[in-house]
Design a protein around this nucleic acid. Structure first.
Lengths: 146, 146
DNA sequence: TATTGTTATACTCTATAACTATA
DNA sequence: TATAGTTATAGAGTATAACAATA
């Protein structure tokens, strides 16, 4: 028979996760502000930069864990800023591939340096091996729900 | 001389952290909905339950990583629901201690069971030892900034 | 019928500044 | 003058539903 003790909030993984996440997002947002980006836009831009052929908005929504309707607005903003383009696809005329422009690639590269630097403070107490384990665990949390 | 390769988004700890956090918050929120709570309110209620003498709103803000003005609204809602009370403090009449009511303790206890159960799906791929390491790492990320 | 993208809407969360009352 | 709490407001993020175009 199991005894249920009142678990302190400081042991609640959900709480710890969202608190740490909030902290890191804040730090990254302020690092990205000078580039006219916020984390969400930065993430979309990064995925567009990594996909040589472009990436559909459905895929973006799926990878980012967002609703497709939210992706529309993010892509709108990046398009207005000239960092990505929506390209028609002959194969399936419903999908529009999001592709980074040359300017998008440049901005993403310099923004990445600042974003990475901003992460160093919150991660300062974790060694590289620990960071790798953390990446692995966070990825498994994500995949567990599908 | 260091070579900077374009790191994939899937290796970005900030991204992984906020994606996993969002997923867990969603799962917890829907588990708490039946109790009339959301994660933020639940966290405040939990801290109030754990502090026998009550806890000041400043402390709440500090532990939760929120601005004090946000805590006001959360406490307002919990007060309206009859789950916590603000008690005057003779020692320092500026501070008002947030204390859980008996009803607050009851609600928190049943809500906790549902919240914990909801966490099992996202955490299903992590063993207990790993969860403990994850708690430790997330706590260190938090403390690294102060 | 199902899927991709889109629009619209309402709600929650976040960030800031200014104010009050006490210390 | 500094701190605890409060009010107000604007902006960003989240959640749903409904729709057009295409498959």
């Amino acid at each position: 028979m199991e005894v249920h003790m009142s678990q302190p909030l400081a042991d609640d993984l959900g709480f710890l996760l969202s608190r740490a996440s909030g902290q890191v997002v804040r730090a990254t947002n302020s690092a990205l502000a000078g580039h006219g980006l916020r984390v969400r836009q930065y993430s979309v831009l990064t995925l567009a930069c990594q996909a040589a052929e472009g990436i559909s908005q459905r895929e973006l929504a799926s990878v980012l864990g967002l609703d497709p309707s939210q992706v529309v607005l993010l892509v709108d903003e990046l398009t207005a800023a000239g960092l990505v383009e929506r390209q028609a696809q002959e194969a399936d005329r419903r999908t529009r591939l999001v592709v980074a422009t040359p300017e998008g690639h440049r901005v993403r590269e310099t923004a990445r340096e600042d974003a990475d630097a901003a992460m160093e403070t919150p991660l300062s107490l974790l060694g590289e091996a620990e960071r790798e384990r953390l990446r692995d665990m966070l990825t498994r949390i994500w995949t567990a729900t599908g």
